[in-house]
Each structure stands twice: as structure tokens, then as C-alpha cells.
């Protein structure tokens, strides 16, 4: 279980997170929604330790992440970055097997390659992609490779940062379905940040809306349409008028 307690983060005068409290149950898929610049990525990066919060506590299975052994902690996570973040200098299979070729999860090169090819198949790509470089792939293929890298070491917790950004609607649907299948198959705890409502409805068990640095509403995805919360109603229906000010 992931628990956030009173998380604060400012950049200069900009109060991005102003006391975020949130719980994500083990094995559940939580989707964080919210407008651009509301701190969704900051929240996610704070959990991973890529950004240090100014205040508050992050607990994973009851343990404060600042007290945890960093390597062991990160070995439990997989992350799909918004732009893929594949390493340009490495072929696809080495990108996927990156964690399996170094550190505590290191294994023989052939075994790491076999796992990479199996993960490629898992995300619907053929083994001939393995030796190509990321720059030779389309946006959708890069996203799939990035997804394969995120699941390569069978993580317990997977983060997805805007998984469908930049993809056409059909490819977005494919990625959403893949994410849902993989999370269910692996029994992983997932946290996704997105403003794509199709993604939300496909991926989420629960959703939380981040607004003005706090969680505005959280609950099961099935309750989202009848939440009675004006903010979430405006967001999910994409209305320009409402409590959330839209800058024109």
C-alpha cells in the first residue's frame, strides 16, 4: 500500500503540492487526474524520490521511503515515462533489460535478452524489434518498448506518466488495454497520471483528482459520474465553465 500524508512541495512562490493525502491499496489501479500544471508529475516523482518534498510523509507498505534502502525500494517499481525516456544509445532489448543487466537483479546477458524479447511479445511487438534503436521506432512502438521496460523486472508497483500522450486514438486504446491487462495479470499496484478520460475509464479502479495542490475528490471510478463534486464534473465533462478557471 502507498500512503501519502500531508505532502507539500513548492517551486519558488509556486505552491504545487499543498498538503496531499492519499492512499493506494495494494493491487489496485489508481488514476490521478487534474489539469495541466496541477502537480501530478511532481506527486509521482516525489514518491520515486526524483523530487524531494518540502514536507509530509510517503509510506510504502508502512515504511517511510526516506528510511528505505534506495536500491531495494526502486527495485519494486517500474515506470513508464511520458515521452518513453528510452536510452538512445542502446538497442531496444538492452533498454528493456537495463535493470536485468546491472545491480542486484543482474543476470547473464543471454537470459536478460530472452526476458527482453518475451516482454516485447507481451506488449505486442515482434522479436525483430529487439536489435533496433529507439530512434528507428514510431511513437506507439516506443511507448510499448517503454512499457516493456517498466515491467521487465516484474515490479510490484508500476507508475504510468501520461501513457497515451502523443498517440492517435486507436494506439491510445491499444496502450490502455495493454496497461489494464498487464496490471491485472501481474497483480501490481498501479498509479497513472493522465487527463485522457478514455484512459481513466479503461485503467482505473479508483481515481483521485488533484486541484490547487490538494486531492479534491477520490473514490472508485464507478462513482466518478455521480460524485456530486462540481470540480470533477467539470473536468470529466470537459466544460470550459465551472469552478476550475480556464485560461483562454
Amino acid at each position: 500500500m502507498i500512503e501519502l500524508r500531508g505532502l507539500h512541495k513548492s517551486f519558488g512562490q509556486n505552491n504545487v503540492l499543498a498538503g496531499v493525502d492519499l492512499s493506494i491499496e495494494r493491487g489496485k489501479s489508481m488514476v490521478i487526474i487534474g489539469g495541466s500544471g496541477t502537480g501530478k508529475s511532481v506527486l509521482l516523482k516525489s514518491i520515486l524520490g526524483l523530487i524531494t518534498p518540502d514536507q509530509g510523509q510517503i509510506l510504502v507498505d508502512g515504511q517511510d521511503v526516506t528510511q528505505a534502502d534506495r536500491d531495494a525500494f526502486l527495485a519494486r517499481f517500474g515506470m513508464l515515462f511520458q515521452g518513453g525516456a528510452l536510452f538512445d544509445s542502446l538497442p531496444v532489448w538492452q533498454n528493456i533489460a537495463f535493470r536485468l543487466m546491472r545491480g542486484s537483479l543482474k543476470r547473464p546477458k543471454d537470459e536478460a535478452r530472452d526476458i527482453a524479447i518475451e516482454k516485447l511479445r507481451r506488449v505486442g511487438l515482434k522479436s525483430d524489434v529487439a536489435d533496433r534503436f529507439p530512434a528507428e521506432l514510431s511513437g506507439g512502438m516506443q511507448k510499448r518498448v517503454s512499457l516493456a521496460r517498466a515491467i521487465a523486472a516484474e515490479p510490484e508497483i508500476i507508475f504510468f506518466d501520461e501513457p497515451t500522450t502523443g498517440l492517435d486514438p486507436i494506439m491510445s486504446g491499444v496502450i490502455n488495454d495493454l496497461i489494464r491487462e498487464i496490471v491485472v495479470d501481474m497483480g501490481a499496484t498501479a498509479m497513472t497520471i493522465t487527463h485522457d478520460m478514455t484512459s481513466v475509464r479503461t485503467i482505473a479502479d479508483d481515481i483521485a483528482m488533484l486541484h490547487a495542490g490538494r486531492i479534491q475528490w477520490t473514490g472508485p471510478v464507478g462513482d466518478m459520474d455521480q460524485s456530486g463534486d462540481r470540480y470533477i464534473d467539470q473536468f470529466i465533462n470537459g466544460r470550459a465553465e465551472g469552478p476550475i478557471e480556464a485560461i483562454r
Binding site: 520515486l48 527495485a75 517499481f77 515515462f81 525516456a85 536510452f87
Partner: peptide, 16 residues
């Protein structure tokens, strides 16, 4: 370029 395309963050999340 690695930094702006989040490859440095990716390295960290891959325990490197």
C-alpha cells in the same frame, strides 16, 4: 538532451 527527455530520471528509477 537526456535530462530534458527524462532519460536521467529513467536511469534513477532503474536503480542506476
Amino acid at each position: 538532451t537526456m535530462k530534458v527527455t527524462e532519460q536521467i530520471d529513467a536511469l534513477v528509477t532503474l536503480s542506476t
